[in-house]
């Protein structure tokens, strides 16, 4: 990369954006477009049996546009379909290719290789779901007479007079909903985890009913997908599920490195 077109004085050399690490036998990500504007092609930097997925970026330009975010994920998810991939978090930029070799691949190559071997042909799937507003609120009213009663009371009150009670009502509803999120996420994990190599639940957020990630062996992928379908069917009208994947193992890569025993 240093051998590129000569640049005017003052202009900075391109830096090296790092997406992730693969085995050096992974295919070149020929079609992948990187982050930045304009995006540069993504290439492999090979060293000691592993390879970093990188592309040139302008170190003076900010990154983080929707196109950048999508490009980062797209590069990793695409490569992960063909070869085990260790994804890096968005935004990692190193001075040049030499630094990628010297500071990343050389000292940590063995760890990466071990983690890639452990990962094998597993891929991550994410299962997320949102409540149907009407259905979940009806459930809450039916299950909690105290909430239903407060609901009746606040309906009668003007906006000013009922402010405090409405805040209280909303808080009770929010708490009840959070309890349901935990319950539903546990049910999701309980049902799907036995079909997977690893499972990880994300914390409750205000807008998702369930949110969990799974590491799935390629041989069990169909079985896993069928189980998610079945769950989506069981929850129809109540929770709208969506299945993302196969993805790079974003939720599991830290554990893989830890198990490989040679992280930084």
């Amino acid at each position: 990369m240093n051998s590129a077109i000569p640049r005017q004085t003052g202009e900075q050399d391109p830096a090296c954006y790092v997406y992730g690490v693969v085995s050096d036998s992974a295919p070149e990500p020929a079609a992948a477009q990187g982050v930045g504007d304009p995006p540069a092609p993504v290439v492999l930097v090979r060293h000691r049996g592993v390879a970093a997925l990188v592309s040139e970026v302008d170190p003076t330009a900010a990154l983080g546009s929707p196109a950048d975010l999508r490009a980062h994920a797209n590069v990793l998810d695409t490569v992960a379909q063909h070869a085990p991939t260790l994804p890096f978090r968005f935004g990692g930029v190193v001075r040049d290719v030499q630094a990628v070799t010297d500071e990343l691949l050389d000292p940590f190559g063995d760890t990466f290789a071990a983690a890639l071997e452990d990962l094998g042909d597993r891929a991550q799937f994410a299962v997320r779901g949102e409540y149907r507003q009407g259905a979940v609120l009806q459930e809450i009213l039916a299950a909690r007479p105290d909430i239903a009663k407060l609901n009746e009371q606040t309906k009668e009150l003007s906006e000013e007079a009922g402010h405090y009670q409405r805040v209280q009502l909303g808080e009770m509803v929010a708490r009840e909903m959070a309890a349901r999120q935990q319950e539903d996420t546990s049910a999701l994990i309980e049902r799907l985890a036995p079909l997977t190599a690893a499972a990880s639940a994300n914390g409750v957020s205000a807008d998702l009913a369930v949110d969990a990630a799974f590491l799935v062996d390629s041989g069990r992928r169909r079985e896993f997908e069928a189980a998610v379908e079945e769950l989506a069917h069981d929850w129809a009208g109540r929770i709208d599920l969506r299945l993302l994947g196969p993805l790079a193992p974003y939720d599991f890569v830290a554990d893989l490195i830890e198990q490989a025993g040679g992280g930084p």
Binding site: A61, L76, G91, R95, E103, Y250, A254, P264
Partner: peptide
């Protein structure tokens, strides 16, 4: 997926990390 998860390059590359906005 990509902002909170994945390996953090700062932990590996210390000398030649480029701070970008």
């Amino acid at each position: 997926l990509i902002l909170d998860k994945g390996l953090v390059i700062d932990a590996y590359v210390r000398v030649s990390l480029v701070g970008i906005e």
